[in-house]
Design a protein around this nucleic acid. Structure first.
Lengths: 135, 135
DNA sequence: CGATATCAGGATGAGAATATCCTATTATAT
DNA sequence: ATATAATAGGATATTCTCATCCTGATATCG
């Protein structure tokens, strides 16, 4: 469903959210969510550039959420890595696919696609970070 | 959503279904659905080995559906290329994710995931091949 | 100040997915 | 029979994602 990188980003952001405002270093985060440390560092950096996280350098540095968890839809976490806009989710891979310009599967796929879009747009980091530690 | 290869497979199978029993050669098919000819040939070959298509060699050869279009769920077309079983669709990429062993996002993602699974399992090639030529 | 911990980010490598090429096999038409 | 048209499928090339490595910038602690 999501690229490896987007999954890493999600896991990391959820872990940060569980820290309740406490900054967490990339290395600790990597160990906690089980992803390659160096790669995660780059991924977190992208999230900083996209306004999802803020990164603090130097001793006692680390990453925090840029906004309250309730203000960050999962879409914001995922979008820098995967383009999941509705038009780009055509089942048959057409560059654009809409009600006006539908592919053969559009009519039937539409409802499902909508559900996916709604999920990422409406579910916030808070909604899912409240859950279990794992993942 | 799907890999490039799975998309190609879907497009090709839908085009074959529109041929109403008439065998279509890989080259003609490739031109019709707009995919690299040699690559499509390999992809079609996989579908033959998986019992979705039958390939006829020699002059006037080509590909036909192995069953009636109404008997081929999209899942069968896609599965040889993408593993989209529910357990493998964990948002956070855990190897297994279920009601018994859920990830943080499981509860909320579950409904959407189910819809996706139902779509591929229940929608048949006939359901979507009836639609437009394009795609 | 100086040592150290940490993010920022460019350069490079490994592997998978995608794409191309070529040869073998098989059926049909003449 | 022979030529030809088509699938079958191995070998190879290309591209992109994922991952590692290294250096620079910056903040904190003593």
């Amino acid at each position: 469903m999501l690229s490896q990188t987007a999954e890493y980003a999600l896991r990391a952001v959820l872990a940060i959210a569980r820290g309740r405002g406490q900054a967490i270093g990339a290395a600790a985060l990597a160990k906690q969510v089980g992803v390659p440390p160096n790669y995660l560092a780059k991924t977190l950096n992208v999230l900083v550039r996209n306004g999802v996280l803020v990164g603090a350098r130097g001793r006692n540095g680390g990453f925090r959420l840029a906004r309250r968890a309730s203000q960050i839809p999962l879409l914001d976490v995922v979008t820098p890595f995967d383009d999941i806009r509705p038009g780009r989710r055509c089942l048959l891979g057409r560059p654009t696919c809409s009600d006006q310009n539908p592919c053969a599967a559009h009519q039937r796929w539409r409802g499902v696609s909508q559900r996916i879009g709604d999920f990422f747009g409406e579910t916030t980091v808070e909604d899912v970070s409240a859950g279990s530690m794992s993942g």
